[in-house]
């Protein structure tokens, strides 16, 4: 899932300081699971900013709603009536949601309440970890199911570098060295010989370096 974290309340408040009526829009997708922008977080944020504005004698009329998903146009067409009279929408979705809103509500000020961090999953409740760098051409079959692109601090494809010690990465003693993990797993699987193959330089044009990407499935497209 996409993992995001809320920006400081004061920063969000600053973005809407000249608005009188604002819709705080949560998302029931990934950001609900990572406890950043679901229904509860949306209520807390709205409440906090309402209090702040009252204390500043600049009261804010804040309404809240949580969409099924903000990253699908179908789910935001239904909120037209909620958006009608507000000056701004504070989106608690990932960057995708914010952009869909901005696209649909052309005359509305749309601001992000979250910092979209990465795609990953949870380790324990309250802790999430990055797992995939969206490189566009997965090589997990060559690295024992552990992603060196994002989990190695240097995205090394022929690791580990000389900074790996006691299983940890040189950048931080709390970060596992991805290549130690890859080595351990390949050894356990009896596939160490695979690591002797020199991995060729990667085609980053399939990643973000090639510009915004599209994924197409012609067979499911509906002809108009």
């Amino acid at each position: 899932m996409i993992v995001a974290q809320q920006k400081p309340v004061s920063e969000i408040a600053q973005m809407i300081s000249d608005c009188k009526k604002v819709l705080f829009l949560g998302c029931a997708g990934c950001v609900t699971v990572c406890l950043a922008g679901g229904e509860k977080e949306t209520d807390v944020l709205a409440s906090a900013i309402r209090i702040k504005r009252t204390l500043e004698s600049n009261p804010l009329e804040a309404t809240t709603f949580t969409c099924t998903r903000q990253c699908d146009p179908e789910y935001i067409v239904g909120i037209d009536n909620l958006v009608k009279d507000v000056d701004a929408i504070v989106s608690l979705a990932c960057g995708v949601g914010v952009q869909y809103l901005a696209e649909r509500f052309k005359d509305k000020w749309v601001v992000p309440a979250l910092d979209t961090k990465f795609i990953g999953g949870s380790v324990v409740h309250g802790l999430w970890e990055e797992k995939c760098g969206l490189c566009g051409e997965c090589i997990l079959h060559r690295t024992g199911g552990i992603c060196p692109i994002i989990r190695c601090s240097k995205s090394i494809l022929n690791g580990p570098c000389g900074g790996s010690q006691h299983g940890k990465c040189e950048v931080d003693k709390d970060v596992d060295c991805a290549w130690q993990l890859i080595y351990d797993r390949m050894r356990a699987l009896g596939k160490l010989d695979k690591l002797m193959e020199i991995q060729p330089i990667k085609d980053w044009s399939k990643s973000r370096d090639g510009g915004p990407r599209k994924a197409i499935r012609e067979d499911v497209m509906i002809d108009e």
Partner: peptide, 8 residues
């Protein structure tokens, strides 16, 4: 922390 941040 939130209360401190929003001034209450």
């Amino acid at each position: 922390k939130i209360l401190d941040e929003i001034g209450l």
